[in-house]
Every structure is written in C-alpha cells, then in structure tokens.
Amino acid sequence: MKHRSKVGITIFIMAIVVAAIAAGCASTPLRTEASTSGIRAAEELGAADVPQASLHLNLARESLEKARVLAAQDKKEQAASMLLRAEADAELAIALSHEDSERSEALAAVARVRKLQQDSR
C-alpha cells in the first residue's frame, strides 16, 4: 500500500511537471526578434532601393507575417519554422544591399584610377 502511494505520488509529480512543461510551451511567445531586427537592418541599409535586396526584404516581411498568423493560429512550430525563412531572407537582403554598395564603391574606385591615369598623360 505504501509502495503504491509512492508510485502514485511520483506519477502525480511527473504529471504536474509534464503539465507545467506543456503549459509553458503553450504559453511561450513567438520569438520574432531575430527576424524583425534583420528586416530593420536591411531597411536601414537601403535594401528597398536595391532590386534583388528589395525582393528578399519583402519575402522576409511576408514570412514574418505568416509566422505571426501561424502563431495566432497556435501553430507554434510552424510559426517558428516560418521565422527561419524570414530571418534567412532578411539576412540575404542585408548581404545583397552590402554587395550593391561595395559594387558602387569598387566602380568609383576604378573610375578614379582611370581618371588619374588619363589626367597624368
């Protein structure tokens, strides 16, 4: 009898823990910080003005919105997975913006060299 009560207590505790974990998981908010900060960074770098970067910036925004919709639908896992898309697109938008500015600066540097060489002739 005593042995049964210990098993019962153990099961009860485990049930509480599981319930608590389950309750915790159910109440965990959607972590969109990485996505939103990536999107904000891309915007500040002028991604909207670079065609290819602008595309991925929009994709990131859409994915973020879909994630929020999924989260609202209590599809946490799908929402989290969708946030990965948003983060990846935001990161790529940043890189493409950076690439565009590097391209412009490289072209300007080459032009400066050519002008200097022409002027010195």
């Binding site: 790529l92 890189a95 493409l96 950076h98 690439e99 590097e102 391209r103 600066e105 490289a106 540097a109 080459v110 400066r112 060299v113």
Partner: peptide, 16 residues
C-alpha cells in the same frame, strides 16, 4: 553574395 562582396572589396583594394 558574400563571395561577391569579398570580390568587390578586393577590387576596391586593388583600385586603391
């Protein structure tokens, strides 16, 4: 894109 950025930076460095 990162490779392209590195190439552009290398191009800039060469231009400098």
């Amino acid at each position: 894109a990162s490779a392209s950025i590195a190439q552009k930076q290398a191009s800039q460095a060469q231009a400098r």
